[in-house]
Structures are given as structure tokens and as C-alpha cells.
């Protein structure tokens, strides 16, 4: 990885999946902070600020869409990849379209996941570059 590491926030409630994902992403050079709940994920938005969020929708304390909308509303420089067990395409929120990079149906194959995260990181860096 020649580029600067892309900080990733991982929000996923299933411990095995969370551990596996974290392992996978750090194996590929990403720095990962893992959250098990919506509340935890919300706290981790602040500092250090992640560039990409890998978000599960079905969380014990709420729906991941809430976090997605919050990010869009606060106009945070953050790109989001959603992972969901149900491929509920109709749930794609229009009001958060600009922060949503991809919508992946579980189980997400490692290659597809890495591709989506890579694209999100590129977009996030472009955003940061444009903002600077």
C-alpha cells in the first residue's frame, strides 16, 4: 500500500463476522476500529475520524440506516458501505445517496468486500482532497 492508510469504522454485531472482517481488513493494510452496536459506532465517528464506514443494518440497538442518515445530515467527510442480510434495495435512502458507496448483501465475499472498501477509500480521499 503506497497510499496513506484509510481508517475504517466497522459496525457489526456478530462477533465472528466482526473478528473475521477486522482481520481481513487489517491484513490488507487498513486500520480498523470495530463497533458492536449503533451507539458505539456513533461514538467512534468523532476521533480519530474514519474515512470509510462498513455498516451492518440489523443492530441490537437500532437500524444502521439511522447512522447513515446522521452522517449525511451532518455532512461528515465519510463514505459508507452497507452490509445487510436482507437485500432490501428499496431501503436505499435517497437523502443519504452521496455518502453511500455500495450496498452489499450478506454473506459478502472477501473480494467483493475489498473492492467496495477500496472504492470507498478512493472516494473519501478525493473528497478530502477537494475539501482541502
Amino acid at each position: 500500500m503506497a497510499q496513506a492508510p484509510c481508517p475504517i469504522l466497522l459496525v457489526e454485531d456478530d462477533p465472528s463476522v466482526r473478528a473475521g472482517l477486522a482481520q481481513l481488513l487489517s491484513d490488507h493494510g487498513y486500520s480498523v476500529r470495530a463497533a458492536a452496536t449503533l451507539g458505539e459506532g456513533r461514538r467512534f465517528l468523532a476521533d480519530p475520524r474514519p474515512a470509510v464506514c462498513l455498516l451492518d443494518l440489523n443492530l441490537p440497538d437500532g437500524n444502521g440506516l439511522e447512522l447513515l442518515r446522521e452522517v449525511a445530515r451532518r455532512n461528515l467527510p465519510l463514505r459508507i458501505v452497507v452490509m445487510t442480510a436482507f437485500s432490501l434495495q428499496h431501503l436505499r435512502p435517497d437523502d443519504a445517496a452521496h455518502v453511500l458507496v455500495d450496498w452489499l448483501a450478506k454473506p459478502v465475499a472477501p473480494d467483493a468486500l475489498l473492492r467496495a472498501v477500496g472504492r470507498a477509500c478512493d472516494l473519501a480521499r478525493g473528497h478530502e482532497g477537494g475539501g482541502a
Binding site: 456478530d14 465472528s16 463476522v17 473475521g20 472482517l21 482481520q23 450478506k106 454473506p107 459478502v108
Partner: peptide, 10 residues
Amino acid sequence: RNPVQALQYQ
């Protein structure tokens, strides 16, 4: 889905 995904990562 979750265990299948975990298996894929492993």
C-alpha cells in the same frame, strides 16, 4: 449468513 461470511473470511 453470518457464519458463512465468517467462514469466507477465515
